[in-house]
Amino acid sequence: MDCKTYKSVLKLDKGTACTAWNYCGQRLAAGTVDGTLAVFDSTDHASSSFRCSSRVKVHKAGILKVVWVPPEYGDAVACIFYDGGFSIWEEAGEDSHSVQWKLCEFFNRGSSKVLDIQFGVSPTSLKMVSTYSDGYIQVYELSNPLELKNWQLQAEFQNVIDSISTFRKASCLSASISWNPMRGGQELSFIMGFNSDTPQLNSSKVWEFDGAHQRWLPVAELALPEERGDRVYSAAWAPNIGRPYELIAVATERGIAIWHIGLNPDLDGRLPMERVALLSGHEGEVWQMEWDMSGMTLATTGSDGVVRFWQSNSNGVWQGQATFVHTS
């Protein structure tokens, strides 16, 4: 497949370290190493030219990652900073003229740094999962859908299947969270994996909210028994538009694993799962994986600076479809 057709969409500010597109691809939030959040807006939905609509200094430390809040909760982003804290900023105003980016809430967990944040939408509330360098996962819930200020800590746990053991000395370099992207009635769930020195924490686990007991349960561990200690660099849950199974990609040092996860748990509460492919092609770690809207194509990128596209053929065999290398 041909990937040579590309065009430049916008120029980023000097020192930009991370970017994130909003739900409709009309806004880009970009964070710089000096702690400035720049927002680029498309001039028209039908054209692909963008201009910067706002630049706000949001923190003294640099911005490591930007994550958009789901659109049902306004135009807002969470910024993760180099110094380990994160904050939520929102574009709002009492009238049309006073609209500007404002700080809603700042989070700091002391000595443990936040590594990743992701938002999950349930029919009634917004949930936020944050993971920390000490191997802990926190789940927050927004109490008022119109105010991004009041977050209630709903749960705190480590990324281990057996809940008895805790690892106090864990040191995690990076973490990867991916919510089950489907809206609708079923229970909320997400997948989470660590890149740490504690093997038990690393493997990616599917966490599901048990509404009856108000707790989060690990329902699947996406790693072969001998590979459970592998550091996880990235995980991505594919949108399910009607498949009888969920599709999840997990990147470790061995490559990109594609998993099929059954929809219904077996007798001991675990979801049936099968690794259908282990893809290699990237040199070095895979930092980011993104499923397209149908879950048919997986785009990945990593330290080799190459974007790769993966698809399954009609026989269910996953293979690389195309690559993109930027040459300037």
């Binding site: 691809g25 499923w291 990128t301 974007v307 596209f309």
Partner: peptide, 18 residues
């Protein structure tokens, strides 16, 4: 170069090149 990727409309992918 560090990259960041995000799917845009349909099958077009936006790649941020830092």
């Amino acid at each position: 170069p560090r990259l960041s990727i995000c799917w845009s409309r349909g099958n077009s992918l936006r790649v941020s090149l830092f």
